[in-house]
Computed example of a mutant assay.
Amino acid sequence: MSNLYRTVLDSFWSEYIWLPPNTTWKDIAPDASSEIQHADYRHLLYPLPMALVMLFLRYVLEKYWFAPVGVSLGIKNTKPKKAPTNTVLEKAYTQSKKWKHKQIQGLAKQLDMSERQVERWLRLRKGQNKPSTLTKFCENSWRCLYYTLSFIYGLVVLWNKPWLWDINECWNGFPHQSVTSDIWWYYMISMSFYWSLCVSQFFDVKRKDFWQMFIHHIATIVLMCLSWVVNVFRIGSLVLVVHDCADIFLEAAKMAKYSGYQKVCDTIFGIFTVLWIASRLGFYPFWIIKNTSIDAPKIVPMFPAYYIFNSLLCLLLVLHIFWTYLILKIVANSLNAGKMEGDIRSSSDDYSEDSKSQ
């Protein structure tokens, strides 16, 4: 069994796949050169305990900072009203979250209740699982703080790096490029944050794009880990800084909405929409993906890992396009309503009386 595991592992980490021609793993080992500090794959374990620290820090900040601020802004921590105990409806509810009119009619007859009473019970039952507005405000505050600090730190770190101003510098001298301490921290903190999101996502406000976000987090982590192992951290750092900038304003817009500052929310959301399209559908595909797929092979000899990295980058682009569609829908609805309506990643647990028409 151990021999099979070793064979599979050696096949997966084949130098032919992951490294340029005439390059071996020994060539980019941490101790391969006294002049160049290559990335150490063993350091990829550090973000795991760091993610636990990140979760603890989030808990402390939400409880002792964000929640008091939210309360001072008038956000109530009211918990939704619970549905009366009813074993028949509870059993039916656990079996399905979507209801057709015929199902509601059958339950009403079985329990000698009106259809409206059954519908009201279902709304209360679904509503009791919803987090309070204060809980959502705290969640958005944490993410807004992280994205703001991460983006600022990323700019500070990359400002004096040549590859920020000339992206082709990501490949000059590759794979023999040194990892500086500031880039090391940028990578480790970013990975710890995405690892923490993979855990907290199952406890946070449930969104209708739950699985798209989960795929996004996993794809980001895989991309970062592989880029670290193969020493492609320069292009990875650019991907990180491009991704962080728009998210600041998304979370800030939600915070303003939950606080009751609708005009502020609308303004911030407008800024977010422009930044999102510019960064996620502009800089990301036409600056980063263009470079990794078209320009990089002209500088570094082609090897199979190009296809792996570009496939993951394109997967993120597909998710960006999906979210852009949701954003533009909200913009259109907001223009019609005169204000931002709903949430770009709203809860899917809302029960609608439209089931009558089904």
Rank of each mutant, 00 (worst) to 15 (best):
P68C: 09
I104C: 14
I235E: 04
V229K: 13
G70F: 04
Y307N: 13
S334A: 14
W195G: 14
M224V: 02
H217Q: 01
S355H: 15
M340H: 10
D349W: 04
A256M: 06
N310H: 09
Q212G: 07
V222L: 12
A253P: 01
S150G: 01
Y5T: 12
L57Y: 11
L55Y: 08
Y261K: 13
V242A: 12
W159Y: 12
V241H: 03
L107H: 04
E341T: 13
G127K: 07
M224E: 08
Y16P: 05
Q110P: 09
I75Y: 00
Y146R: 03
C265R: 01
Q110H: 10
D204R: 14
N333R: 08
K126E: 15
V118I: 14
D349Y: 07
V53D: 05
I288V: 08
D354W: 12
R207L: 03
W65P: 10
I277Y: 06
K97T: 08
L134I: 09
A337M: 01
I308D: 13
Q177I: 13
S72A: 13
V8G: 02
S114L: 11
M340G: 04
I189K: 00
H216V: 02
Q103D: 15
W323N: 06
W142T: 09
S132C: 03
F202G: 11
P21C: 04
W163M: 03
K82R: 06
I28F: 08
I344W: 10
A252W: 07
L107A: 05
M340I: 15
S34G: 14
V222T: 14
M54C: 07
F137W: 08
T267C: 15
R58A: 04
I299A: 04
G127Q: 07
I183V: 13
Q110G: 07
F249P: 07
I299N: 01
Q105E: 15
F66H: 07
K329R: 11
D350Y: 06
K206Q: 15
Q103E: 15
E35K: 13
N77A: 11
W276F: 13
T180C: 12
A337K: 02
K339Q: 15
A108R: 03
M54E: 03
I167K: 13
W228N: 08
S181M: 14
K206W: 13
K109P: 05
A246V: 08
M188I: 10
E139D: 09
V71R: 12
K98V: 14
T85F: 15
L312E: 01
V274S: 08
R234G: 05
F210R: 14
L111D: 08
L158N: 03
K91W: 07
W276E: 06
M255A: 09
H101F: 12
H43M: 15
S190R: 00
I189N: 00
L89P: 06
L275E: 01
S279Q: 06
L319A: 02
S352A: 07
K98L: 11
A296T: 12
G342M: 06
Q128R: 03
D349V: 05
A305Y: 09
L317Y: 10
D343F: 00
F193N: 02
R345L: 11
A252L: 12
E62M: 03
Y258T: 08
Y16N: 15
R120G: 10
N86C: 08
L158E: 04
K97R: 10
Q128D: 01
W323L: 02
I330Q: 05
A332T: 09
S293H: 13
L281Y: 06
D27K: 09
I75N: 00
F309W: 15
